[in-house]
Design a protein around this nucleic acid. Sequence first.
DNA 1: GGAATAGTGTCTTTCAGACACTATCTG
DNA 2: CAGATAGTGTCTGAAAGACACTATTCC
Lengths: 230, 230
Amino acid sequence: MSTLSTYPRPAVAVDLAILTVTGAGGADPELRILVQHRSDPDGIALPGAFLRERTTVAQTADMVLESKVRIAPDVTAGPRLLRLFDDPARDDRTWAVSAAHSLPLHEADLAGARGELVPVTADGQLEGVDKLLFDHAAIVAAAIADVRERYEIRQRYAGVGPDPDHFLPEPFTLHQLRRVHEAVLSEELHKDNFARRMKPHVEPVYDDDGEVLLSTALRGRPAALYRRAQ
Amino acid sequence: MSTLSTYPRPAVAVDLAILTVTGAGGADPELRILVQHRSDPDGIALPGAFLRERTTVAQTADMVLESKVRIAPDVTAGPRLLRLFDDPARDDRTWAVSAAHSLPLHEADLAGARGELVPVTADGQLEGVDKLLFDHAAIVAAAIADVRERYEIRQRYAGVGPDPDHFLPEPFTLHQLRRVHEAVLSEELHKDNFARRMKPHVEPVYDDDGEVLLSTALRGRPAALYRRAQ
DNA sequence: GGAATAGTGTCTTTCAGACACTATCTG
DNA sequence: CAGATAGTGTCTGAAAGACACTATTCC
């Protein structure tokens, strides 16, 4: 402890698995992850950066978004730590530890982002991406498992309520909400059971006359609009 | 990236919330956490150390156990990452990031350990400990929440089977197993429901004659002995 | 037999899964 | 009205919670 500063220190990378649901509210929402092409080691990778002098993980994540992804999102929830990668040989260039995070963002915040939003397959792979650099494939797998766990709608023992990462803008119909959960889980849900489970966690949106706002349906009966409770 | 080595790097600490259940198998098992007295900044703290040149978290944890706790445990499961503490001002001495881990160990492995095993209260505090150094109180709270979640026995949606951290040596009776879970959760469980949930995850232990081994009861009917299934 | 502990049968409640029906819109 | 989508009533089965009973040991 007394010789604290004399020992070599690792570079600490913050790698981000940026998740979004594209087309939320529309016909075919899809869970996607942002990957970028790198040339330093040549290949596909997640965006990331090293912690600079006296900065935090959150600040570093902001810096990555700004300078590498070129977006300025309205971050609702901060990056979620998934795991540490600490194999001393994982990066040829230097001793580097990676703190792997997931970062769920609105699709709207990703407009103009550098990189590509790649759809996630049912078994947790990235569609059409063979290989990611470093241990980024493991980060992607962990991020998908993490978000799917949180979108489980077994209210009693799991689940954190409707669309915890706010992929879907308010107000929304129960149908739209279900489509988003289905996109994340890659699993079909029964509309009746889904509605019963979600009802306690959403509230209807009213207009000036105290009437429940309805969606303007293209066909069929218009659906009631809701927002997250409280 | 090209100037990788020119930037200052943080010291990376591995702090360990070492958990055990004392008296597992006995009358009054208790969930406890190891704390140590420090004089550098004076106070009570969790054991920990900084990552040294090209070592891993696991190696650093082993080093902490050897040189600071003075034990050589038979580690069943590695340290579990709880969270990162990255406030640049959290340590006066230098820029240090802490990777907070929990490490569940057998009570037997902690014989002769430096420090004190402090009981955990029902609300997740340490009994009789006012204040911990740095952010170690938050680490303790996270470690307790983590182990309690894993000892929940709602098999369908949570739970990782009987006594996932192996606090209780085999073979054991269902009564002993339940007492250990109760000690971790700080909550009483019904013996009948507990037995039904655990039965699929344990198997009886047989003697040479193919008879089910029984505990030698002090009073009452002897209980069957089990071990974890498979 | 009595005390003590082990182990099981079963009733009730809750809730997910599934099916079918009714309701309300457009053209 | 037909077609389409929204929303609900209700049956079933699985499992947790709770209670009570039976079983086996030592004294």
